[in-house]
């Protein structure tokens, strides 16, 4: 038990940013919008959260700033793809690159500053203190799961993702719903960034997210657009990293490069399965994903 507790704790922590960003992107994609800019929104959220928190704003305000900045970045994306009818993939990639540059620019004066980090609260004696972000990620999962499958709003959102023209004909405000889904995705990415910059590694350095946004994107596909599978996938991806570190330190002869490759390999396997046994899995893929849609078309 004592050996497993630290592994469990670090796995939870490693999976948390993936859960936040992954859930946000999942909701966005369920509304039929593919936003590849997760990495960029995450970095913009991270640097904003860090800037506010380290300038005396405190962690709560910092986290809110991160969420707000993520939303602002996603609003730009929404404007381009929903109103200017820009290609979603190109715009998303541009947002990812823009986010890397913008966050580095904003963060110039904060490079290598450090924060105290978040102190967890103890739930049960003997257990390690719980981190509010980790608890929050589980809460967000429950919320998304409930919203998508148990609420009317979720049903409408999924309908928009499947066939925006049908939803439009039924009188649903497709563009507004997509706006909301994109903003939610941005908020979640910003939150993931805020977690990285204020809690996980409480500092700001260029490229802090180190590719986690891309893993989150892969995770949505890996999870075949289902929140519960996304949660499991995040723990799997997080756990693989942690386990390979433990294996190395214990002297197990597993090539670390192979273990580092596993999450991506798993995603490729899922993608292959989707394309081969399409009927079973593609059912979950939003039918209008990535397609430009305009009310007058």
């Amino acid at each position: 038990m004592n050996d497993w507790l630290p592994i469990l704790a670090t796995t939870l922590a490693a999976a948390t940013p993936l859960i936040f960003a992954g859930l946000g992107e999942l909701v966005t994609e369920r509304a039929g919008v593919l936003n590849l800019g997760v990495e960029g929104m995450m970095l913009i959220g991270a640097v904003s959260a860090f800037a506010v928190a380290s300038s005396g704003g405190g962690l709560l305000l910092g986290t809110l700033a991160g969420i707000g900045a993520g939303m602002a970045a996603s609003a730009l994306f929404a404007l381009l793809v929903l109103h200017c009818l820009a290609n979603q993939m190109a715009t998303g990639l541009a947002l990812a690159l823009f986010g890397v540059g913008l966050s580095a620019f904003i963060g110039r004066d904060y490079v290598s500053h450090v924060l105290d980090g978040v102190s967890g609260y103890t739930l049960l004696d003997g257990l390690p203190p719980l981190d509010p972000f980790i608890v929050g990620s589980l809460g967000l999962f429950a919320l998304v799961q409930w919203f998508l499958y148990r609420s009317r709003g979720g049903l409408v959102l999924r309908a928009v993702g499947e066939s925006p023209s049908t939803a439009h004909a039924l009188g649903y405000p497709v563009r507004l719903i997509r706006w909301a889904a994109i903003l939610f995705g941005g908020a979640c990415s910003g939150l993931a960034g805020a977690y990285l910059a204020t809690d996980y590694t409480p500092m700001w350095v260029e490229g802090l997210s180190a590719g986690r946004g891309w893993i989150a994107l892969a995770l949505v596909v890996f999870a075949t657009w289902k929140p519960a599978r996304l949660l499991a996938g995040a723990y799997l991806f997080g756990g693989v990293t942690i386990l390979q570190f433990h294996g190395q330190a214990l002297g197990l002869a597993v090539p670390s490069q192979f273990m580092s490759m596993l999450p991506y390999l798993a995603t490729i396997v899922v993608l292959t399965l989707i394309s081969r046994r399409g009927h079973a899995i593609r059912l979950n893929a939003p039918a209008s994903l990535g397609q430009v849609w305009h009310p007058d078309s």
Binding site: P6, T10, Y200, T201, T241, I242, F245, A249
Partner: peptide
Amino acid sequence: FDPGKEREAALTLAA
């Protein structure tokens, strides 16, 4: 350069 991984590795070794 990957602060997250470096930290995870440090916690692993600490454990």
